[in-house]
Design a binder for these strands. Structure first.
Lengths: 217, 217
DNA sequence: ACTAATATTTAGCTTTGCCTAAAATTATAA
DNA sequence: TTATAATTTTAGGCAAAGCTAAATATTAGT
């Protein structure tokens, strides 16, 4: 698997989930900042390798093999993002580009050990689930804190738009990935909420609640 | 700087220090597992970029610019090796190939933070010095423990040949990178030594002492 | 149903980094 | 010193992954 192939697979993987259908040449070209003709070339190559099913003019669909390969790239990407944020103290919005490079490092043992070193995380710093070694994604519906109702409990899994100010606010309130948030009440007219984090109880505005992703079980 | 260019620079850097002279096309070709003609191509390219001085049939020599770039690649390589051993618990002899890939990741900030995360190490797990950000190498003569004489002090900087058994022995004796070793005495006929490590004093055979690199000041 | 617009593929070219074979240079040794 | 050996460079090609322009399919609007 070359670097380019891995990048195509990963992008197809994401687009398939978003579009819930075959992925078109143009959709791929746009996402990958490349030309449709280049995409066609690569699709033919990946079809030869049984990574996907390609039907002229009809788009592509990953095979099981392709899905697994793609999920593994995603797994590596997200684990490295956790590393960058948890260990090297990068901010959530600075890590994508670096992880984009690190995801291509080839060593199964490396990823095994990295995963253990990080404590087998389930989510990356953006709240997206980390596929397991076999490519299974715990499709934990992530949703906005603002969508919860009274007495619901959510686990913080990420942020939507992360300005430095917002991240600082979360820091101050001791909210990070994995933090349990209990909705104690919700104001109807402005969407603000009373929440509990650890032993602290406080209000958050609608704006705040609309930028925090949580997972409910 | 492409990946291939970085690899050439790094190899030239190492060969220049070993040979203490210009580096010949064939020497490079052998080290890089490639053909002389490929080397010539790349030398012309790197000469265009002012990374080295290339004289037909006379070999190459790094410029200051080239030296700095090469040293930075080496710095990254060695820092990642420290990460792999110290944090991910790889053995000293398993990390080269992985670091070979990681050294090419592009992010100045990443390396800054990695360095801090590792505690600004001066040596990699093989005892080789880590160049600083500016490419300066603390050329701390590393030598074998067996070369020391009575009352000399050495800092452990690495191993020569690292079998699992040997590494285990060092573990048991609490000897690792950075450990100070005091030579209390040396037996003439068998080369064994009495040494002090922390509060412990014990004998090491010549075999042991010949496989441990130390730095003296 | 038919044309216009859009999407996709094909053909042919470019660059990077490698290769082989042949030519040129330098080194060696009788 | 001169022929032979070894080293190095040049010339010409190849595969990967991209691009442009032209050809071909599909979709949509009337």
């Amino acid at each position: 698997m070359t670097l380019a192939e891995e990048n195509y697979l990963k992008t197809i993987f994401h687009l398939e989930r978003k579009l819930k259908s075959e992925v078109s040449t143009n959709a791929l070209a746009e996402r990958m900042q490349t030309r449709a003709s280049s995409v066609t070339d690569m699709m033919q190559k990946l079809a030869d390798k049984k990574m996907l099913v390609y039907k002229k003019y009809k788009g592509v669909q990953l095979t099981e093999k392709g899905k697994k390969a793609a999920a593994y790239v995603v797994r590596k990407h997200r684990l490295w993002e956790v590393f960058l944020v948890d260990k090297l103290k990068f901010h959530w919005d600075e890590v994508h580009e670096i992880a984009e490079q690190m995801e291509h490092i080839k060593s199964v043992e490396l990823i095994k050990r990295l995963d253990a070193f990080l404590g087998h995380p389930d989510f990356d710093p953006h709240g997206d689930p980390i596929p397991d070694k076999d490519g299974n994604i715990k499709k934990a519906e992530k949703r906005l804190l603002s969508e919860l109702i009274k007495n619901q409990i959510g686990i913080c899994v990420g942020v939507k738009e992360s300005s430095p100010e917002y991240l600082q606010y979360l820091d101050k309130k001791k909210i990070k990935i994995g933090t349990k948030i209990n909705v104690l009440g919700k104001e109807f007219f402005d969407g603000s909420m009373m929440i509990q984090v650890g032993r602290d109880q406080f209000f958050v505005s609608k704006q705040i609640a609309e930028n925090l992703y949580v997972q409910t079980n």
